[in-house]
């Protein structure tokens, strides 16, 4: 039995949006300390790796390791039915062939409160904003809906079943790597650079020197260059640009893939780029304290 409830279901919606253009099918691997996804695109040029730690869920139970094979487009379609404020619970039996997804609206907690306090709350002196006052408001809503609690629960809880599939996933063994360059910058700024550079060409060079990080593109239309300098003392954490460099690195990449990666921008204010000479770049979006989505992209190399 696997069961996990994420209060901020939006994270799951955004995660699937962030990978569904890159991979069609993948496994959600569930263990007692995390759920993870690792999948390559069809051409094996890029890889996406997701990790959500069990501690980031408000309920998590996984009796034994499970691999749940899913079609990303189909899961995306179902997750579109969840509101941005909904909590999402995932459930799967050990030998089942479907994944149950339960979406609960943000009023769900208050409905639970109603059940708990209903009798005592009527007519009592409750300070403004207290749970008992909320009960009165919910009571009013019940009356206008001409219903009872059960009706509201039906309206506020949606249950979907996604068919699962057997997927032979090719797992890449990615060694722990000390990268020569680590760049942390605002994810929105990275997204804009990638979007703008795509107007000019297909290949982006990323060059990190003492001067800063230079993003450059050359195309038939002309050339574009953007220089980002370290700005470790910006007022807001999310505006900071931090560059750690052991040695200068310059690599080139296909913009098409980098553009796919920026679909994860909504997951957090910060993106981290890790680079070393002649190895894949890692583009990481931390997801609060819950986990991360990382993309690996093989470089283009002059032969």
């Amino acid at each position: 039995m696997f069961e996990a409830r994420l209060t901020s279901g939006k994270i799951l919606k955004q995660l699937i949006e962030a990978l569904k253009d890159l991979v069609q099918e993948a496994n959600i691997d569930c263990s007692d300390d995390e759920i993870s996804i690792q999948a390559m695109d069809n051409s094996h040029v890029s890889l996406v790796a997701v990790s959500l730690r069990s501690g980031g869920f408000d309920h998590f139970r996984c009796d034994r390791p499970l691999s749940l094979g899913f079609n990303a487009t189909n899961m995306g379609k179902i997750l579109k039915c969840a509101g941005n404020e909904d909590a999402i619970t995932l459930k799967a039996e050990d030998d089942g062939d479907s994944l149950s997804m339960v979406f609960e609206g943000p009023n769900q907690d208050r409905i639970a409160d109603f059940g708990e306090f209903a009798r005592g709350a009527r007519g009592s002196d409750s300070p403004p904003g207290s749970r008992r006052e909320k009960c009165w408001k919910i009571d009013f809503n019940f009356a206008t809906m001409r219903g009872v609690g059960v009706l509201v629960v039906i309206f506020d809880r949606k249950i979907y079943e996604l068919k699962l599939m057997d997927i032979d996933s090719e797992q890449l063994g990615i060694p722990d790597t000390d990268y020569k360059v680590t760049i942390q910058m605002p994810s929105g700024e990275f997204q804009r650079i990638i979007r703008d550079m795509q107007v000019l060409g297909d290949t982006l060079s990323i060059s990190c020197t003492k001067e800063g990080v230079k993003f450059g593109v050359q195309g038939d239309l002309g050339t574009g260059n953007v220089l980002i300098r370290q700005n470790a003392h910006a007022e807001k954490d999310e505006d900071r640009v931090m560059i750690e460099m052991e040695e200068p690195v310059e690599l080139t990449f296909a913009l098409r893939y980098l553009n796919f990666f920026t679909k994860a921008t909504n997951l957090g204010p910060t993106v981290i780029l890790n680079m070393s000479p002649d190895v894949p770049i890692v583009v990481e979006y931390p997801i609060g304290e819950t986990g991360h989505i990382k993309y690996y992209l093989a470089p283009k190399i002059d032969e």
């Binding site: 090719e170 063994g173 002059d302």
Partner: peptide
């Protein structure tokens, strides 16, 4: 133009 490599050049399949 530089050549696009795949990840299989850098990492082993498990």
């Amino acid at each position: 133009d530089p050549r696009q490599f795949t990840l299989l050049k850098f990492y082993e399949l498990n």
